[in-house]
Simulated scan of single mutants.
Amino acid sequence: MHANVLFLFTLFFSVFSVFASPVPTGETQDIEKRLTRSGRGTYFHVGLGNCGKWNKDSDAIVAIPKSLYDKNGGSNCDQWVKIKDNKTGKVAYGKTRDSCPSCKSGDLDMSPSLFKKFASLDKGVVNVSWNFMHKGFKP
């Protein structure tokens, strides 16, 4: 009887330990691309971004929240983001090339040409949802 109880306890503890283990960094990045974030979509004039590459305002560029950029160690550089205007349903894609210090966790800063796919620059802010596409994706 005690052997059965001990066996069940050991089995339960082993299974629980597996589920309680931290997620390795590579898997965190895989999970990140499946998350859909929502927040303010704004625009900025691009140049040399945190990813170390120069861009022009006519490029489809995004700056992700600095907290997310730092959390992922810049690993999202050159990764495409799918952006949806929550009001109109319009969808566009932007390449991650910078971080946005003033963005909250669901916000996204876009190059002027990318922002114009959703609204005029005069509007300044749109309500968006966005998520990372898989590495290697190109629109």
Rank of each mutant, 00 (worst) to 15 (best):
G94L: 02
K95C: 04
T28E: 15
Y93H: 13
S129H: 09
N127C: 00
G41N: 07
S17A: 15
D78Q: 12
F115E: 03
G89M: 09
T42Q: 05
E27I: 09
M133T: 05
G49L: 05
N72C: 00
F13C: 07
D122T: 14
K123P: 03
V62G: 01
S21M: 12
T96F: 01
V15R: 00
D70C: 01
G41C: 03
G136S: 09
S129Y: 04
F44A: 10
F44R: 09
D78L: 10
L48D: 08
V15G: 00
G94F: 01
E27Q: 14
C103G: 05
F13T: 13
F44N: 05
G41L: 04
T25V: 09
K104Y: 09
F19N: 06
G136E: 06
N131A: 06
D107A: 03
S17N: 10
H2A: 13
P112W: 04
T36W: 11
K90C: 00
F44K: 08
R97M: 13
C51R: 08
T36Q: 12
R37L: 12
G49H: 04
A20V: 01
I83H: 02
K53H: 13
G39Y: 05
S67N: 11
V46T: 15
D59Q: 05
Y43N: 09
W80C: 07
N131M: 06
L114S: 04
V5E: 14
S105Y: 11
T28I: 14
H45Y: 15
F19M: 11
V128Q: 02
S21C: 12
F12L: 14
G52V: 05
G74Q: 07
V91W: 03
